[in-house]
Design a protein around this nucleic acid. Sequence first.
RNA 1: GCGGUUGUGGUCUAGUGGUUAGGACGGUAGCUUCCCAAGCUACCUACCCGGGUUCGAAUCCCGGCAACCGCACCA
Length: 505
Amino acid sequence: MKLDELVALLRRRGVLWPSAEIYGGTQGLYDYGPLGTRLKQRIEDAWQSWFLGLSEDYHLIQPAELLPEPVVRASGHLENFTDPEVTCGHCHAVFRAETVLEKVRPEGVDGLSPAEIGEIVTRHQLRCPSCGSTELTVPRPFNLMFGLDFGVTGRERVYLQPETAQASYLSFARMWDVGRRTLPLGVAVIAHAYRNEIAPRQVLFRMRAFTQAELQIFFDPTDFPVPFSDVADELLPVVRARDRLAGREEVRRVAARELAGAGELPEFYVYHMVQSYRFYRDVLRHPAERIRLFEKSDQERAFYNRIQFDLEVQLESLGGFKELGAIHYRGDYDLGRHGQGSGHDLSVVPTGRPRVLPHVLELTFGVDRNLWALADAHLTVEGDRTYWKLPSYLSPVPVGVFPLLKKEHGPAARSVAERLRSAGIRAVVDTAGSIGKRYARMDEAGTPFGVTVDGETVEAASPNHGTVTLRERDSRAQERVPIDRLAERLRPFFVPPRPGGTRAD
RNA sequence: GCGGUUGUGGUCUAGUGGUUAGGACGGUAGCUUCCCAAGCUACCUACCCGGGUUCGAAUCCCGGCAACCGCACCA
């Protein structure tokens, strides 16, 4: 589906819309409606179920979303999240200072003040890369973090967190104390991150306020055991950085054991590549051929990342592979920086092992982007039929209950819905229009099961008394099910998969 | 941020200076209907915002906001 069509559909169904829409909207901000909010919750639940299911020592925490200035200074965001800019006075193009100064200062512009950058521009008579003019103005700093006044004096500064990972690092010492004092230790966060993006684009793909689900795994680099034999045979669709540099962009399917062979990628890293890949394939149900693990080269990845593969899915609405998550091996950069910044040594002594400053493996997941991807991948148009093939455990509304005839069967339908709700299954009753129209509405909202109450349900003399029709969304197949058995019949479909578990549907 | 294009009910759209701003889909209510968007009736909802030109602006001009495409950007 094209971008515009998808946006229109999602808006019409109340999945999402621009924030402050009655004022004309606000760039980079979106609100979720009823369906979107539920879908997002279910995506987060599925993510938790999968990734926290990897170990009993992986825990979810919920941090404040404001970071005091010393934290972002230590993390590097105060200096590195600042992109010095150079503006051309002639053609008004804007460039990163790093780009303009590339030739005369290949080591980059980190640590330079705007005045120093301006001085270099003048001294070397640098020209605008676009029009060749020398009218390049002195850059002014632009930080992608939102800074806020804090406290009554207004002199303290805090920043909206630009990534949720910092919260995990900040809590590591506490988590070590309240936990079992073993490595690996996982600290997950699902929360908003905020970035003052220069150009928000593509709806949910670059927003100024967005939700990240991230798992930071702290581990001893000399000892990170994983059940590698469980994943060794998995074929991973990878694009290696060195292949790209050699001009080969295509996906290769490589066995996990081969990727980890010859000591090239650590087993713990490949293991988590597989688990991430399986999450996209088996939980979010993206077709395997649309998923790839895209390795970032030394130049492309952040300097503290030792290994980085982005998890990308091919999206029709955005015309190509898009990054929906990533696996970052960040080394000891984060705990090292915060150890220095706070003066609180973050190295630990696991039982029976020498003192170690833990390394970090980060599994990061963009919740909003993935919500979009689920619409892109699973909203299906066939002729005049539109249905959203969401996995049942992700569907905002699991069950629709319909009286075949509004008057005659309405009370019975409401009673069936109430019984499902008592059993913990959310069910909504729809009485408007014909039965076909209600099925169509339900299909478009991604509701996997329709329950129809008809004459036989309520007619005491009928052999089908007390049974209803259960309709499955994708196949449109129908079967007769006793009301008494409905909840137990449906419940397994609403449990999100866990790693190593079996699939319900 | 730069350039281009665009902005009409919830959605898609007709309307190029004077229209009761039209249609389709949709929604609501009623009738009908015993299983896949049927039909009938009624109702609902719109010219992105602010200035200007004009006797008169959805329409022309300026500014703003927003979206899309390209560039740039995306620790």
